[in-house]
Design a protein around this nucleic acid. Structure first.
Lengths: 195, 195
DNA sequence: ATTAAGAAGTGAACACTGTTCACTTTCTGA
DNA sequence: TCAGAAAGTGAACAGTGTTCACTTCTTAAT
């Protein structure tokens, strides 16, 4: 029953966005009373938080499989960045929702666990690049990883927010999403490599 | 009167976020009736859109002054990226609000004008870098500018969403925001320069 | 098989939201 | 002075998340 609620909620968010999700309409969709939902979830926020958690877990799985592959470092790193963005764009509404609003530094110490875990992969990637002598080893890997995450998050967020980002916006010749992600990852990685 | 409404709305958004803005409470704050606001603005969305427009205009002003300075190219480019992010972080709630939700490709053709203009500066910066021989001239400058914007937007968006991004999140030694923005801009710019 | 306990589900209500509309007040220009 | 427009209002509508007393159902123990 819990899962049937979550499924319906995920479907509604995918179609109408996080703000379009209404407990009452959700209840009607699965032939429930609105109050019944509160037997399973303490609040609407709790419900969508659970969805976010599952969503980031899915992203992590994909990044993990790329990171664990046998390809050379640069390929692996390139695909890590790509895959994060591609998986984020699988559910644009959910990804945007996960980063909307200013979080209060007090109450999110544990709530933002999924993001922290996605982040660990980046740190180890940067450390590996430094150990191999490709990246500047004098930089703090955690801080560098934050900058890299920022770049990836920006691409994911922008493409999710503006579905026509690559078609419109001054593009006389539209660019394929895949080609854009390659260019983006190439620029970021190139920026990390020592000269 | 219009401006007094806008001022109050901006203040409330800065304090409680875009979702925390309520027409009714806004009306009470300035001793108005809720209905009166609809004599000046067609809807709540129209009101906050006007705020967004003004906000991006402010950002543009600052980027413009950097771009028009007499410094060498690399300094100018570096500061362009920095200033965009810094100005965005001046009003975190508003910046996040401007990029929340998936926009319908049908109705936003003209609505997203401010973002398009902020974007023009990046295009000309990339073109200048190519003309000077610093950047790979075989790349489409518009597409490259999109990738660069993605990187900057990501930093702005992440820092706005997580105010403690640089203190918490695996940072045993907290990094100054200014130092982080320098590192971020350096990586992105370095990624653009030819090898 | 009976009964008690607890889980699951409900309808009605509360307090809030954006928005509209008929209505009144106020101001302005001829 | 007076008509007409502009500015402002209270009440209402439809929607929201959430709560609570209440009923129904299931399950376990006597």
């Amino acid at each position: 029953m819990r899962t049937s609620i979550l499924d319906a909620a995920e479907r509604m968010i995918a179609e109408e966005g996080e703000e379009g999700l209404s407990i009452r309409r959700l209840a009607e969709e699965i032939d429930y009373s609105p109050a019944a939902i509160y037997k399973y979830f303490g609040s609407k926020d709790e419900l969508v938080d659970e969805l976010k958690e599952a969503f980031f877990a899915r992203i992590l799985t994909h990044v993990d499989s790329v990171q664990g592959s046998e390809e050379p470092f640069r390929h692996r790193a390139h695909n890590c960045l790509r895959v994060y963005i591609e998986e984020a764009l699988d559910k644009p509404h959910q990804y945007l929702g996960a980063f909307s609003g200013v979080v209060d530094p007090n109450d999110d110490i544990k709530k933002e666990g999924h993001k922290a875990r996605a982040f660990d992969y980046l740190i180890s990637m940067v450390e590996e690049g430094q150990a191999l002598g490709h990246f500047d080893a004098s930089r703090n890997p955690v801080t560098v990883a934050k900058a890299v995450w920022a770049c990836c998050h920006g691409a994911a967020s922008l493409l999710a927010h503006l579905p026509h980002f690559l078609e419109g916006m001054k593009s006389e010749t539209p660019v394929e999403r895949s080609a854009f992600l390659d260019l983006h990852a190439e620029i970021v990685l190139n920026g990390l490599y020592r000269r």
